[in-house]
Write a protein that binds this DNA or RNA. Structure first.
Lengths: 351, 351
DNA sequence: GTGAAAGCGCTAACAG
DNA sequence: CTGTTAGCGCTTTCAC
């Protein structure tokens, strides 16, 4: 509220803080309603008016105020993407797929990163509850908003929510890969190489992905007629550091001839810790991961893993959310294919 | 617009879409202004009123509508963070530092990822121009908004902007590490190991970081009395793939005994490509990186690199932006220390 | 096809 | 310390 009170102090119109819809209307000699319509529903405006409005907008560089728009229309054209850990490189391609799809549709993306103090969760949920976003995409494999007793995200506002992994309350649309089958396939791959004692590195407790992958691991053992030994299960948390720590422990344990890590980051840290301690990979111990992150292929040895179509997951998830947002029907469940990528880190068991 | 038209069809008040400030006011028997003040400036409200408001808010689960708030107060309590590539793991710790600092101050973060179609840049700039964010943090080492002839981010709105690297127009506060000195130190490290022919892998053209690092490389060469040979400069773009590609080329080139890559991702891809082709690292060729990303320490061999205090960079940048936002003065330039981390990927030159 | 007018939910003057 | 009132900038009936 400095000098912006008097409309035109004599200079060019340029020093006015920021152009509003009224400025465009005045310049184009139409009402603000027509400007609004020219932007939202051009076909309901005469070509002449439309042209004048476009010219006026270009002339003064008008940009609609999103807060006003959101307040009035109760739509933000923003989507919330909730993920457990932004630092996990696994999500970056998914985010990319989501963002490009949303962008094309004129939607923006707000990232809700759960990594940090638990109070953050409430703030993220508030984004949806207060209409800052029109819908949400959940990439977190654990219950969201469980503090309030269930999926509160959306339940209050009716904002559509899509899960990009096995969803927890199974009543929201989900896009997923068959983690269980893929983990089973990897386990069978190891068994077929002659491994009988296969260690398993878990993800965080309570994680849905982890539950599926672990179940797949056990399926695979069963399919190969191998007994499950709880002593071979090492609790991890999907971080590189956990992998390094567990690798150090495994190096002292001559028993398992193969390790199946439920994600690549841990597998890479683990391989490194083994090699550092003189354990040869895959000579002494085979190591397998899950996800096929970029660093899996350049690890030494290159990591055998399960490739997930991450960008596609993101694109598909976003597309389904957009459908929901537009009131179109969406499949309750979409499954994308994975692929077993055999590289150098797995080999026949030593005899 | 379904059944929400008739106010109270008989059920509990619970099915009302979402509580507004008026609902709180009614329940607490105060005016909406008092509710607003109880939230914003509690000390200007009597303890009794404050308590009644708090109880009412808790009872109906009221959350202020941010769009209305933003529209009225012209403040969004949101900060824009612009970065060139969300997939680059280098940024994750910086983001973390930023986010935690902003969160404590009650600010939210919107990520503007430049990676993608160029139209995205305009949309990101619009966030600032339309008041969706109160300020911005620039992590991109290249000119932003140059299409409009200069830093338009902020110039229209007066929103404060802070650069987390050497800024392009040097008139905004910047937080940086001395890239040039660090690169020179690394180059000297290689020279001291006896390397005379040191290849250099660049970042994207026009990147400010890159300019500094490259200058540092040349400084280092000069300090070691080594001639600069343009033939040893390989244009990269900070991606793993570029590293792999350049590594493949280098494997055919027996000349350089050391490679200094201007970031870790490329160095890791490069090492891998060399090793795959039978070139020993560091036996035949030493490799050095820059950044000390998490994967540098677990690469095989572990990568010699320059550690940047990434989380601290983020925290400091956010803190300075918060100062600016609060009208407090801020230093034009803050410099954080780097550290040369010597690991296994560099060794004495073969003779 | 277009304009007038109401109001989204909130905060900030201004009185009292 | 509290209430009344106006209005942030836009979209959207409702008339014409």
């Amino acid at each position: 509220m400095d000098e912006s009170d008097h409309p035109a102090p004599g200079c060019d119109a340029k020093d006015r803080r920021v152009a509003r819809i009224g400025d465009v209307a005045r310049l184009a000699k139409v009402s603000t309603a027509t400007v609004s319509r020219a932007l939202a529903t051009p076909d309901r405006v005469s070509p002449e008016a439309r042209a004048r409005v476009a010219a006026a907008i270009a002339a003064i560089g008008y940009m609609p105020n999103p807060a006003a728009r959101t307040l009035r229309s109760q739509k933000s054209r923003m989507v919330l993407v909730v993920l457990p850990d932004l630092a996990n490189i696994f999500f970056s391609q998914i985010l990319r797929g989501i963002e490009e799809t949303l962008f094309e549709a004129g939607y923006g993306m707000i990232i809700g990163n759960l990594d940090g103090p638990p109070e953050k969760e409430a703030r993220i949920a508030a984004l949806a509850a207060t209409g800052q976003v029109d819908g949400a995409l959940l990439l977190n494999g654990h219950l969201f908003g469980q503090a309030r007793g269930g999926r509160n995200l959306g339940s209050r506002t009716g904002a559509p929510v899509v899960a990009l992994c096995e969803a927890i309350p199974a009543d929201i649309p989900q896009i997923e890969v068959d983690n269980r089958a893929a983990a089973a396939a990897m386990t069978r791959h190891l068994a077929e190489l002659g491994h009988r004692r296969i260690a398993y590195v878990t993800g965080p407790e309570g994680n849905v992905l982890e539950r599926e992958r672990f179940a797949g691991f056990r399926d695979g053992l069963a399919a190969a007629s191998l007994a499950f030994d709880p002593a071979l299960v090492h609790p991890g948390d999907y971080t590189l550091e956990a992998g390094t720590r567990i690798g150090a422990a495994l190096a002292r344990q001559p028993d398992p001839t193969a390790v199946f890590s439920s994600n690549d980051a841990m597998a890479i840290g683990l391989m490194r810790a083994l090699i550092e301690r003189g354990v040869r990979v895959p000579g002494d111990v085979s190591v397998a991961g899950f996800d096929d992150i970029e660093y899996a292929a350049v690890a030494e040895p290159a990591l055998t893993t399960i490739r997930q179509p991450r960008r596609d997951l993101g694109r598909t998830g976003a597309a389904i959310l957009l459908d929901l947002l537009a009131g179109r029907p969406a499949p309750a469940r979409t499954r994308l294919e994975t692929e077993l990528v055999v590289r150098a880190s797995t080999a026949a068991a030593r005899t």
